[in-house]
Design a protein around this nucleic acid. Sequence first.
DNA 1: TTATTAAAAGACAAAAAGGTCTTTTAATAT
DNA 2: ATATTAAAAGACCTTTTTGTCTTTTAATAA
Lengths: 145, 145
Amino acid sequence: MFNKETEYALRGLVYVQIQQMKGLKPGIAEIATEIDAPLFYTGKIMQRLVKMGFLMSTKGKGGGFYFDLTRPDLPLKAVIRAIEGAKAYSGCGFGLKSCSEDLHCSLHDQYAPIRDSINNLVSTNTVQSLARDYQKGDDILLRRR
Amino acid sequence: MFNKETEYALRGLVYVQIQQMKGLKPGIAEIATEIDAPLFYTGKIMQRLVKMGFLMSTKGKGGGFYFDLTRPDLPLKAVIRAIEGAKAYSGCGFGLKSCSEDLHCSLHDQYAPIRDSINNLVSTNTVQSLARDYQKGDDILLRRR
DNA sequence: TTATTAAAAGACAAAAAGGTCTTTTAATAT
DNA sequence: ATATTAAAAGACCTTTTTGTCTTTTAATAA
């Protein structure tokens, strides 16, 4: 569904949120282990997320990643757009440049509602809502214990 | 939705089928132009499709690509599986290895039906059905004139 | 103020995807 | 037979994605 970078970013953000709800502030090594992602790549991705303003960090002892709680919930779509670009999940299913709403390809009528569902999913779900779902314990997310 | 190779393969196959319905047998140059894909890359992809048994070809004068009409319609899914592998559109939306039907991630309930719709779309639509849809003239497919 | 800790920055590299081009092989027409 | 045509084969290249590692900077604790 998503590319690796987006996957790791979303899992990392949700993990930080889950830990923050417990009053903790995880670092790269912990995050990478818990979301089952490569250590250094995870570091690079988390740093990019900080630079893009999605979360914050502090260096040094006791440092790690955390969210500014005064900001509104973060929809998955915002992260996806920042990493994969605005065109993700928007074009023709067949890759046709000329496929539009009024003159479209044979797949359009079947594909359009699917595309809309994906967009709805990533718009309504947020890093925070997924962390809350996880805390309720009905779902897994991240590493199995 | 699909990667470039799959896109070009599907468009190429549908174009060959459309031409075959007119009694024609297009070559690489014509196919590449009409499906708006890179010439040599299209050639390579069409050759792979022949080697994989999806369609046939003849060399030399009057040569080109064509389908064995005795064979059943070709679902898009068969082509996608051959190019992208069996795992395409099958895994967890979050990329979790441990996400299963009975113990799943927070996105599962929302993502599963979407994934099913995609699988249904590529299973029910065939190269031939798309070519017929195009012939009926309601849709565009391939290049605009 | 020094040692330690952990993120930031950035160089580097492997693998995959996407694409180009030349040479060879086979079919057909003259 | 020979010339011509067009796919097959395969070498080669570029870009993107994914990943690794070292050095630098900043925060904290002793």
